[in-house]
Design a protein around this nucleic acid. Structure first.
Lengths: 358, 358
DNA sequence: TCGGTTTGCTAAATCGGATTAGCAATGCGG
DNA sequence: CCGCATTGCTAATCCGATTTAGCAAACCGA
C-alpha cells in the first residue's frame, strides 16, 4: 500500500557505502572518524534525494532516548489556562525536537500509576508532573526512572524533584501596591480569604496562602489597615457575589482585592446590585487574568497567572535536569536538589482601579 | 543508577525457558502453540514477580505498532472547550491502552508538516487532525501513511478521510425551537449572522452557515418571520454589544438568538445599558455552552458544543479506520470513504428564556 | 623490501521483543 | 521394531538504527 519508509540501508545502498558509514556521516561523526569528503557528499546527497528521516522508534531502542517527554497533569480541561500551560510546554519542547505525551489523572493515584507506567513503557526521556491549580502533591513512587519536574505544584514530602511555580507572594504584593499607588489607604476589603494569615478557603491551595502573605506584607509596611475580609468556601462567582453582598449590607468599601477573577465576577454583580460603580465608587483588583477579566465591564485589573511561561519554564528545567543525569560531579548537582523556580506574575492594568477620592 | 528495566530475557531466565517461549505465553499464543500448563504457569509467575512490562519501543520496532496516536490541532489554548476535546480523545484512547501525542500548528502549514513528520518518525498508529473552531481545512499531503480522522473540520477538497463534527444544523433548529416552545413568534432577532443565508461573518466557519440554516428552517416551517438580524464581524463580546445596542436604538426585541455565548455576553451588557431585563423583557438563546454561560446572570440558555464527545468520537472513528486498514474487501470499505459523523449538540435550558407575553 | 602507521571504510553485535522454521522426544499404528 | 505424526519447546532472523572492533590498502621510514 503506502510506500515503505526510507531506511538508512536504502541511503547506504544508493550512496554505495555500508550502513555504518551512512550512519556515521549522518550523525555528524564522519569527520572525527575520517570519512572522506567524497563519501560524505555521496551519503548526504542520497539522504536528501530520498528524503531520509531516521526512525525514532529504532533510535529509541538502540540508544534509549526517544526525544519525547511525558506531561502528566491532574486535569487538563479546567480552563483556557490549562491549555496555555500545555502550549508553553509544547512549544519549548518542539524547539528542541521533542514531542509531548499528554496524560490526565483526574486526581486518581491508580490512574496516575498506570499513566506513568505507560509512559515509561514508551521510554520517555523526562516527565512533567503538573497540577492545574497550584497545590502540594504527593510525588508518586518510582519517579527516578526518568528525570522529572513538578509544575505548579510542591511536593508534599521532601523530594529531590525541582518544581516550577508562579510567584504568588510577589503577586500579592503587586496587587496591594496597585491600590496603594492609586492612593487607596482606607476601606480596602479582601474577598476570598483573610484578613488573618490562617483565614483560608477549605482545601486551600498554595495560592491563597501566598497571595495573602504578599498582600499583608505590603499593607503592613505601608501602615495601611485592611478594613475587612471574607473567606469564600470556593472561589466561584456565586461565593464572590455572596461575600460581597454581605460586605455591602454592612457598609461601603472603597476598594476590593478579590482572590481570583471568578470571585471578582461575583463581586461585580453584587456591586451592580447595590448600584455601585466600578471603579468610580469601588476599585477592584484581582488575580489570574482569566479570559473573562478582559470581557468584564469595566475591564478587570488583575495579576496574571503566567501559565504559558510556567509550561515553558518546566520544560527548560526538565532539560537542565536531563542534561546532568549521569552527572557524578556531586558539587553542583547535590546543591540544586529540590530547587523551587518562581515565575513572575505580571500585573494587567485595565479599567477597574481609579484614584482614591481625596 | 536506576535499576535496569526488566526484559523478556529476564523473565525467561527466571522461568527457565527460552525467550521465545516466554514471548509466546505472554502474548497469549501459548495455547495454540502447545506450551504446557506447567511452563505457562512458570512464565506467568516469573513475569508477575519481576513486574515485567513489555518495552513498547521494542514492540514498535518489530511490529510497527506503537499504541500511540497523534493529535494535531491548530490551537489548543483557545478555551476550556479545546481542553475538553483533548480530554475526550485522551480518555477514549486510554481505554484502549493508547497514548496521545499532542501537537499544535498555529495554522502554519510548515509547522504542520514538521509536526506530522515528527509523528510519523515516531510511528504513530493513527492521526487526528483537529480544528478548534469548526471549519474547512486543507488536508496536508502525505496523509495515508497512517489512518487519519478530521475532527471539528471538513476537508477543503474531496478527501477520503472521515470527519467528526458537531451537528450544527440541528443545533440551529433546537435554538429556534426553544423560542417557539416558549411561545415566541414575534420580535425575534439574530445577533451574529443572518437574516439571509449569505449574511455571515468574514472568515466564516462552518458554524455560522449551518446554525443559520437550522434556525431558518424551523422558523420557516412555523411560519414565523425573523424580525431582524445583525452580522458581527467577529463573535466577541464587544461586537455583540455593539450589534445589540444598534438594534435597541431602533426598537424593542422580544427575543434574541445569539450565535455564541461571547456574543450573548455582549448582548446582556447592551440590554442592561437600556434597562431591559433578561428574560422578563427579552429572552436570549445562544450556542456553545462556554463556561461563562453558567456564570452570567441570569444563567444563559445555550446549545452546547459537545467537545468532550467530539474528542471521544474522533478516537472511535479512528480505531474503526485503523481496524480496516489492510481491508481489501472493497464492498463496505469504499462506501464509507469520506464519511461525515455528526455529534448531537444538547440544549442547556437555564434562565434566560421566558414565556412570550400573550 | 619489510614491519609499523595511518587512512578509510565495513562486519558484526546490540537494543528488546515477535515470528518463522525446525528440532528432539514421545506416542501410535502396523 | 520401524516409520510417521504429534507434542513441546528453542534457535535464528528480523525490525532500523548505533557503536565497537577490526580489516585492507596506502604510506613511511629503515
Amino acid at each position: 500500500m503506502s510506500p515503505r519508509r526510507v531506511t538508512l540501508a536504502d541511503v547506504a545502498k544508493i550512496a554505495g557505502v555500508s550502513p555504518t558509514t551512512a550512519s556515521l556521516v549522518l550523525s555528524g561523526r564522519g569527520r572525527e572518524l575520517r570519512i572522506s569528503q567524497d563519501v560524505e557528499q555521496r551519503v548526504l546527497k542520497a539522504a536528501a534525494e530520498l528524503q531520509y528521516r531516521p526512525n525514532i522508534v529504532s533510535v529509541g531502542l538502540r540508544t534509549g532516548t526517544t526525544r519525547t517527554i511525558g506531561f502528566v497533569s491532574d486535569t487538563i480541561a479546567t480552563s483556557r489556562l490549562a491549555g496555555d500551560m500545555i502550549k508553553g510546554a509544547l512549544e519549548a519542547a518542539r524547539e528542541r525536537g521533542f514531542m509531548l505525551f499528554i496524560g490526565e489523572t483526574e486526581g486518581d493515584p491508580e490512574l496516575e500509576r498506570l499513566l506513568l507506567q505507560a509512559m515509561h513503557d514508551r521510554q520517555v526521556d523526562g516527565l512533567i508532573l503538573a497540577a492545574m491549580y497550584t497545590r502540594t502533591i504527593r510525588v508518586p513512587k518510582g519517579m527516578g526512572a526518568a528525570p522529572a519536574v513538578l509544575l505548579n505544584a510542591l511536593p508534599k514530602q521532601r523530594s529531590p524533584l525541582p518544581s516550577v511555580l508562579p510567584d504568588e507572594v510577589e503577586a500579592g504584593r503587586r496587587a496591594a501596591r496597585v491600590l496603594l499607588d492609586a492612593g487607596h489607604r482606607e476601606g480596602i476589603h479582601l474577598i476570598g480569604a483573610g484578613p488573618g494569615r490562617r483565614d483560608l478557603p477549605r482545601g486551600g491551595g498554595v495560592a491563597a496562602v501566598e497571595r495573602l502573605i504578599g498582600i499583608r506584607e505590603v499593607f503592613g509596611e505601608a501602615g495601611v489597615k485592611v478594613a475587612g475580609a471574607h473567606v469564600c468556601a470556593d472561589w466561584q462567582p456565586e461565593y464572590g457575589l455572596a461575600a460581597t453582598r454581605a460586605l455591602l449590607e454592612g457598609g461601603r468599601p472603597r476598594a476590593l482585592i478579590c482572590f481570583n477573577d471568578r470571585v471578582a465576577l461575583g463581586a461585580y454583580q453584587a456591586l451592580d446590585d447595590f448600584g455601585l460603580k466600578v471603579p468610580g465608587d469601588v476599585s477592584v483588583v484581582s488575580f489570574d487574568d482569566h479570559p473573562i477579566a478582559a470581557w468584564m465591564r469595566p475591564k478587570l485589573t488583575t495579576v496574571a497567572l503566567p501559565h504559558y511561561e510556567l509550561g515553558r519554564k518546566a520544560v527548560d528545567v526538565l532539560f537542565a535536569e536531563m542534561g546532568r543525569d549521569g552527572d557524578d560531579a556531586v558539587g553542583e548537582g547535590a546543591a540544586r536538589e529540590g530547587e523551587v523556580h518562581r515565575v513572575p506574575m505580571p500585573v494587567r492594568l485595565r479599567e477597574s482601579v481609579a484614584a482614591a477620592a481625596p
